[in-house]
Computed example of a mutant assay.
Amino acid sequence: MRPDHDPLDDPPWAMQLVVRAEKADPPKHGAVCEAAATAVVMLLTDPRASGPDGEWREAVREWEARRIRKVTRRARGVRWPEAEALPGVTVEHAGAQVRAFPPGPMSDVPPELAKLQVAGLDLADEEEPGPPPQPPYAAIALNPDVTITTGKAAAQFGHAAQLLLRQGRRKDVAAWVEGGARAHLVRDLPWRSCVKRAAVAVRDGGFTEIPPGTMTAVAWIVRE
């Protein structure tokens, strides 16, 4: 390995997330974020990723040795079943459908995904957000001082869920995953209170939309 080699950047890898966003009946912002968080955890805990002989295991290991990037894309019409035909994990939640795909080099994204639009996924939020799910679940809050699109927010939710999975207390994480890895967008607590409660915090890499190092999301697991 050459002295100046940086495994965080050379080459860049990412996990692709695809949101189904039909023109006639698009999903809501919060539901997409929550589904994205669950999809990331379900993929990372899938035997294909976590099992000793899992076909995705090496790709996940290689990706997690670099910067943890996620790219959110949108699909509608025939593009959605084309994306679903590729290996991955789909989560349906509150009218939203999000599919997570095994990570890989950004230079080698499958053509069915590479042609899907990245920028511009900005959906309306729920007019009357529902209550939190039954515990255990991941409570995830977005920084209200940072303006980001739904696509970017979904990626931040995925980051937060991944950090909880890898860094959270074992008993809490085990109960959360066993319960379906549900996630909830926290709207009713001040940001400062959320930061105090948080088990993990997401600081953005600055690749899109916002400056590097910005704290975008915090998360914790609610057990009761």
Rank of each mutant, 00 (worst) to 15 (best):
A217F: 01
E84D: 06
A138G: 12
A94I: 08
V89G: 07
A94D: 14
A24G: 11
Q167T: 09
T149C: 09
L121H: 12
V177W: 09
T208R: 02
R166K: 15
V40F: 09
M106L: 11
R20H: 13
V41T: 08
V98L: 07
G77T: 01
P131Y: 06
T214I: 00
G104Y: 11
R99S: 10
G213S: 10
V18L: 07
I210D: 00
D188P: 01
I140C: 04
L123C: 08
R61P: 08
R182V: 00
R79T: 00
A183M: 04
P7W: 10
R69I: 02
V118F: 05
P7Q: 13
S50P: 14
R74N: 07
E55Y: 05
P81N: 09
R74Q: 15
T90Y: 00
V18S: 00
R66G: 13
K115P: 09
G206F: 08
L8H: 14
P111D: 15
P102E: 05
V32N: 02
P3R: 07
P81C: 08
E82Y: 01
Q156F: 00
L17N: 06
G151L: 08
R66Y: 05
R73D: 13
A114Q: 14
L164I: 10
L189N: 04
E128S: 10
V41W: 03
T150R: 01
A155P: 07
T45N: 13
V173Q: 12
A153L: 03
L116Q: 06
K152E: 09
D4P: 08
L189R: 14
A160I: 02
